[in-house]
Design a protein around this nucleic acid. Structure first.
Lengths: 221, 221
DNA sequence: GGCCGCACTAAGCGCCCGCTCACCTTCGGC
DNA sequence: GCCGAAGGTGAGCGGGCGCTTAGTGCGGCC
């Protein structure tokens, strides 16, 4: 599927912060390989090969194969967190902000499925320390969604029986997109984002949740 | 986490159909190992060791390590399908049947998380032929849920804009339980099943979906 | 009671893994 | 024009992998 830059970075996924150019190419190659085959089934020779380098080149920029996964995981989680914080920090009602958060989070999982897959499903392949660090970031992600739901519940705009459980379900829905979404499939990331935002609003019992389909993305500002 | 029988078969998960006793022990050991570490990170020595046998014993009952995963996957998917068919084949309104299907499906994913994890997340480790076979079973699972939703939509009992998309989301929600559910956590499989059934009824716009919490399972007939 | 066959083991084969090391090329500074 | 650092390569190490094979203990059948 074409070059590394297009596949893994296609959706304007950053990776720009990874500074030596060769290190970035290796990292993007690793994201692709991990997403396709999984961390343990990917060899360092495969990663280096995809980046157009010899196996030994990898170890100039990264200490171990695990460090690659760790870096990918941290950058990915930070990006996810940033997306949610942008949505939840905007002005607007909990309903608007939850719809915005879910649709942009889903768009990220669908559009950058390659990255999202690694970020969401290869966590267990990290060692204890790295894993603990990433779990900390995940708690922040969780808190972001829970915050919006709590606010809506407090104001009476939402009707939720179990805030924690509902938060878990909303995140489940979003994250699982990375498992099934197919780039060649019938739906665009935008369509899935809109559909899922609507479904989530129904889950939290928001008032006018059965919105008309077909309009563009949700209005901003 | 005690013995193999308890961990992987704890929730009355069958495996009874796996006939030579040694073959069953190996299979259960494989389920545990695959669930903990993933297929590729699991060694045949680990599987045999958990079953209390020498590495070579595995190859008396299974041709390859992949055959183990294939068998687990097929039996697991058949069990999942059976659960959904039982629920959807019952008498009752689409609302009742959908709630029943989701709650029992979720209970299976939460309670038999070890098995469900392998079944739902190790699919890509299968070779093309075995993978295709299992994907056929997954389409049947999908059809079962979609059938109920379609019926409810046709009768006007549900209010869904996108039947396929909603089906996908319902399955997402259920399947993702296998990713996050923790046996030692604060929720029982039954509680999660009930919560998720309620959330799904909201997603499909079923009439009296905001049911009071605390009661037993949904009423039947 | 002798023998067959089956379930299982001890040992190990060939391969490929993550990773290393000695060496090479390129290039800016003076 | 020479020099050292940075970034890269080819060859290969120790080890663990999936899987095989020769041999062993043992229960069932005549």
């Amino acid at each position: 599927m074409s070059t590394a830059e297009e596949t893994a970075g296609g959706e304007a996924q950053a990776w720009g912060e990874v500074t030596p150019d060769a290190a970035r190419r290796l990292l993007i190659a690793a994201v692709e390989a991990f997403a396709e085959r999984g961390y343990h089934a990917t060899t360092t020779r495969d990663i280096a090969g995809r980046a157009g380098m010899s196996p030994a080149a990898l170890y100039i920029h990264y200490k171990t194969k695990e460090e690659l996964l760790h870096r990918i995981s941290r950058i990915g989680h930070e990006k996810a967190l940033e997306i949610l914080r942008t949505a939840s920090g905007r002005a607007g009602s909990p309903t608007e902000r939850l719809a915005d958060a879910v649709s942009s989070f889903v768009r990220w999982h669908a559009g950058g499925r390659t990255t999202a897959r690694v970020v969401q499903y290869e966590l267990d392949s990290l060692g204890p320390d790295a894993r603990a660090e990433i779990l900390g970031l995940r708690r922040l992600v969780d808190a972001e969604i829970r915050g919006i739901i709590e606010e809506g519940a407090r104001s009476g705009e939402f009707d939720v029986i179990d805030v924690h459980g509902t938060t878990l379900a909303v995140l489940s829905l979003c994250i699982d997109v990375a498992r099934w979404f197919n780039v060649g499939g019938p739906r665009t990331p935008e369509e899935v984002g809109e559909l899922y935002a609507d479904l989530v609003l129904r889950m939290v019992g928001a008032a006018g949740s059965a919105r008309a389909a077909g309009s563009g993305a949700d209005p901003q500002t």
